[in-house]
Design a protein around this nucleic acid. Sequence first.
DNA 1: TTGTGCATGAGGTACGTGCCTCATGACATT
DNA 2: AATGTCATGAGGCACGTACCTCATGCACAA
Lengths: 347, 347
Amino acid sequence: MNEETIRRRATVHDVARAAGVSLATVDRVLNGRPGVRAATAEKVEQAIAELGFARDLNASLMARARDLSVVFFIPDGSNEFMDSLAEAVHRRSPLALADHIHLDLRRVRALDAAGLAESLSQLAPRECDCAVIVSSDEPEVLAAIDAAQRRGIAVMTLVSDLPASARRNFIGIDNVAAGRTAASLMGRFLPQGGKVAVVAGSLHLRDHAERLDGFRAALGAEFPALEIIGPLEGHDERTETAEIITALLAEHADLGGLYNLGAGNAGLVSALEASGRSGNLRVIAHELTAPTRAGLASGAIDVVLDQNPDGEIREAIAAARALALDASRVAVTDPIEIGIFLRDNLR
Amino acid sequence: MNEETIRRRATVHDVARAAGVSLATVDRVLNGRPGVRAATAEKVEQAIAELGFARDLNASLMARARDLSVVFFIPDGSNEFMDSLAEAVHRRSPLALADHIHLDLRRVRALDAAGLAESLSQLAPRECDCAVIVSSDEPEVLAAIDAAQRRGIAVMTLVSDLPASARRNFIGIDNVAAGRTAASLMGRFLPQGGKVAVVAGSLHLRDHAERLDGFRAALGAEFPALEIIGPLEGHDERTETAEIITALLAEHADLGGLYNLGAGNAGLVSALEASGRSGNLRVIAHELTAPTRAGLASGAIDVVLDQNPDGEIREAIAAARALALDASRVAVTDPIEIGIFLRDNLR
DNA sequence: TTGTGCATGAGGTACGTGCCTCATGACATT
DNA sequence: AATGTCATGAGGCACGTACCTCATGCACAA
């Protein structure tokens, strides 16, 4: 490789020289500090564009006094998947710290939009560069996101998107595709056709609604011999889910398949095992957690679709890192893939 | 959070102070340079351990003149999966460069152990910090790996491991689990039992042999009603694979399933489509590439098991970064998960 | 004219590490 | 005793950015 082909990355010095201004002015422009005339700022922006200058994130993090700080707001409560997200944050913490990224985990009450909005609005830009939230679609939250963005805090949505907000990024799976995948598997599991029951947490949750849409569409298009029973709602609660499923099995002795697209899997497994029907019933559930693992192991559940919490946290951190420097751009992240788990390829 | 609870990361200065030596000596110990008595080095090591000192990778990369350089040796030839690995390297390149990591891609002749060994032995530690190779298990390669390690070049295996070598890390999937997963899916696809044919590239390839082991074991244990035909070997070649499968379909009109655990998928798909049997034959193949995507779309293939080339490259880079500083340790990486793809959840 | 405020330049220190030179003292070899 | 070798200290420059202070010059208004 020739020396000529190796072009040094442009630095602030290069930008200053090209724009005919001093380092201080470049710094003011880069960091949005006041004291620069519009015309001068324009010259600097142009030099940045011409040189293809990009800040060196590592040098930047080293120079500034405090680490980059990312705050995760994860719902509390009985949802095991949210616990696994929280654990993933803890697991990543030391690794992130080595890269000057400080992770902060705050558990918030599940489905408490007002509480989440309040927490968001109390974030000071000095102590938080990026907030990552799991939230349902409520106006208070949207407003709080927009306000935080204006204060200079990048906000990202995790698991469930809020496309109508000013959120900078979404990290999560394509839930419509997840529903289609469940249908595609179920169809192949039941080549003779039959009845398939669908249980959701609540259809007011965006993830759940999208999964149902995908499931219905794919089943209708590819496996017309299958009849859908439901959807029934178990509100992601183990006892309620167990009751629903017990009743379902009693009513439909010829049920061929069951798709639980929400949580409450502990109830699902206990109901299935109590019924004595596991084995001749194909069951698909979501999220690889303690109850679904137990279900896979016992044979009560055939397939678990999973959104890989560790991967989501990893990508959220990567996105936060990228966003920290480019206040304007949307970070490019690796997409989160839908994991499909059977008893034989458990993580 | 109290000031007291925030403990600054230990730096070389702290280590020097704690060990009662100068910065220069700490530097000599850290970078393995000569000129330090064993007793003194011991004091330094101890101080490092006590303080839990870890080099700041970013500062380190900034301070040294050249970027971290990672060289990928990817087999050339007609294997589409290898092409997708190469593309993944290209896709990552700009991102890695922003982190002071320079990626170098070298295509080598597939299955040419002597050539790969020669290339490895020509690597100078000045121009390569870490080599990533995809190789079969040959003595020349093992020797070249050991030699490179001794020269200070970290070597990692990708896709196919060489556990008997001095390789520092392996990035890839658990192929036995992949085979089990294929069996588990096939068993559920064929509840009435029947015949399942297995086609491999070559059973001398470690990946393929492991997949076959897993497939056989899981099928035997969980689905005794299924009978295995084969394995037949298509040598990862499209024409040979097509011929084998055409013959197979002619001989076994009642074939219920087909598992191609190697490459040559273009031949698989063309043979299936020519036979007019796709649709009533459950087919599982490996690696999401152009031919397998086409097969999924046309319905010739039901499921593709994939090892996520982009994820593998990402983890290889992360591991190389980690290894660059800890000449002693094995890097911890996120495991590569086996992707399961149907027509409905394509990447 | 003087004051006020703003845009900008100049230059410094700091972050943590790599890598270099030079000086010094201890010890061994001839 | 002279010479050489080696371990070590001291210190500096560099990487690219953040962030600070101070000075300067200019425009506009009182």
